[in-house]
Design a protein around this nucleic acid. Structure first.
Length: 458
RNA sequence: GGCGCCAUGGCCAAGUGGUAAGGCAAGGCUCUGCAAAAGCCUCACCGCCGGUUCGAGUCCGGCUGGCGCCUCCA
């Protein structure tokens, strides 16, 4: 399988570096200061699909995703709410887990948090100071970017280090030797949560956590480091500088994989801009399958616009897949059976090429048509259905019937449908249609077939 | 201002040298008591202008429009 690498701007073959053959995947997660939005879901789903696919192809994956639970916004918001920072983080992390589960996203193997790794972070910073890549200054500690090398520093984001200087924020209160330098450790301000360190009370800077977490959970070098495209600079740029300076090993990550952003209207969906749709809001009107399908009908490196019409289209598409995957086998079977082997090959070829989910889906929809056609012609469609369900599962689609109504209603609906069948048998068309219209208005769709009437919720 | 990305049918969206995947929507037909579902059929001169090539959405140059990053951000 090949994945596009941001650092080299090329597609790389993905081969686990470690001798045990386990692929190390580190993904930058969320800062849990508020509810997560569909953009976060998109990111989680992209890496979920990657992981499911690699597993399916026989490459075991160890997946680590962090929570940044020490952060300015977290501190501010907790203070405004009058609760502890840890409590606020805890709530949002619990929500995040719950929502991703609803979206059928497999949990990462580990979810390290900054608050749990402060000693490791301190040790990491000490190591950088010893090697001359960092310096303490007035209770803060900064990373010396020029020590690492300008060309190397700008490689990931394709930036000239001197252009960065002019754009760098100049804060007169900061104690940097060079405007490019960034904070590894920040001295505590009054009223803020803080931890002990050789430089006094304080807290870790933003970037250092991921270097320390990756080192602790996955080792000195990892296979794929992922996250949203907005993290390329400065977050991932700084991670490379820290990790490679500390371990002396290059590369820190064999492949840098970044997903493009979800847009709402004409702008990036983001917490700071305030233009967002939360995962809960999306799940209130659409199933996990519909949402996932919508998000993977576009390639992960292309920006995608969130629009209700697009979600509705995905909903209809998911329904189409589901109908075909579970359509009843016709009674009479003629040879040859419909199988999905050609589809499987197309699916693999598409996914191997930088996770081309749109093409993989196209293959599944073509198989859907073959299944429907086969069913109409009395062929054995079961092998193809099995393949369809298997491949959909690799994309994390459950093809499950949405369960929105109460299960208790089912016997009553059965009764009404049965009654209607009797009316039809008696050619009482008006009454039969009246029952059907009534059910339709309640969200129950009735379908008449040769073997009687079936119903489903829509 | 610097760096980068994108512009494909009514909507969404693949395709990066040999004459356009897929989904949704729409229209016609088949099936059906009528529907629904399903099937079959129909629906693209690939933003504009030059260039390279036997041949270009696909490569090169220019133009126009849009987006992202450069500051917290998935």
């Amino acid at each position: 399988m090949q994945i596009f690498d941001t650092l080299t701007n090329k597609k790389h073959e993905i081969i686990p570096l470690a001798a045990d053959g386990v692929l190390r995947l580190y993904v930058c997660g969320v800062t849990p200061y508020s509810e997560s939005h569909v953009g976060h879901a998109m990111q989680a789903i992209v890496f979920d699909v990657l992981r499911r696919y690699l597993d399916w192809r026989g490459i075991p994956v160890k997946h680590v995703q962090n929570f940044t639970d020490i952060d300015d916004k977290l501190i501010d918001r907790a203070q405004r709410l009058g609760i502890e920072m840890s409590e606020l983080a805890e709530q949002n992390i619990a929500d995040y887990h719950r929502q991703l589960k609803e979206l059928n996203v497999l949990p990462a193997h580990e979810y390290p948090r900054v608050t749990e790794l402060v000693p490791e972070i301190v040790r990491f910073i000490e190591g950088l100071i010893e090697k001359g890549f960092a310096y303490a200054s007035g209770g803060d500690v900064y990373y010396r970017v020029r020590e690492f090398g300008g060309a190397r520093y700008g490689a990931l984001s394709k930036r000239d280090i001197d252009d960065l200087v002019s754009g760098a924020r100049v804060d007169p209160t900061e104690l940097k030797d060079d405007p490019l330098d960034f904070a590894l450790w920040k001295a505590a301000k009054p009223g803020e949560p803080s931890w002990e360190s050789p430089w006094g009370q304080g807290r870790p800077g933003w970037h250092i956590e991921c270097s320390a977490m990756a080192l602790k959970t996955l080792g000195e070098q990892i296979d794929i480091h992922g996250g949203g495209a907005d993290l390329i600079f400065p977050h991932h740029t700084n991670e490379i500088a820290q990790s490679e300076a500390y371990t002396g090993k290059t590369p820190f990550a064999a492949t840098w994989m970044h997903n493009a952003h979800l847009q709402l209207g004409d702008e990036k969906m983001s917490k700071s801009l305030g233009n967002l749709v939360t995962i809960n809001q999306a799940l209130a009107t659409h199933s996990a399958d519909a949402l996932r399908l919508f998000l993977i009908t576009s390639h992960y490196r292309r920006p995608l616009k969130y629009a209700p019409e697009s979600l509705d289209a995905a909903k209809a598409g998911a329904e189409r897949l589901r109908e075909a995957a579970f359509a009843a086998q016709p009674e009479q079977m003629y040879t040859p059976p419909v199988d999905g082997e050609a589809t499987r090959e197309r699916f693999i070829a598409a996914m191997d090429d930088d996770l081309n989910t749109p093409q993989a889906l196209a293959a599944l929809f073509d198989l859907t048509r073959e299944i429907n056609r086969g069913r109409d012609r009395g062929r054995d469609i079961r092998p193809a259905q099995e393949t369809l369900r298997e491949l959909a599962g690799v994309l994390g689609l459950t093809l499950a019937q949405p369960q929105r109504g109460s299960q208790e209603a089912a016997p009553f609906i059965d009764l009404l449908v049965q009654l209607r069948s009797e009316l039809r048998a008696a050619k009482q068309w008006q009454l039969a249609d009246h029952v059907r219209d009534g059910l339709t208005s309640l969200g129950i769709e009735v379908k008449d077939g040769p073997e009687g009437s079936a119903w489903k919720q829509v």
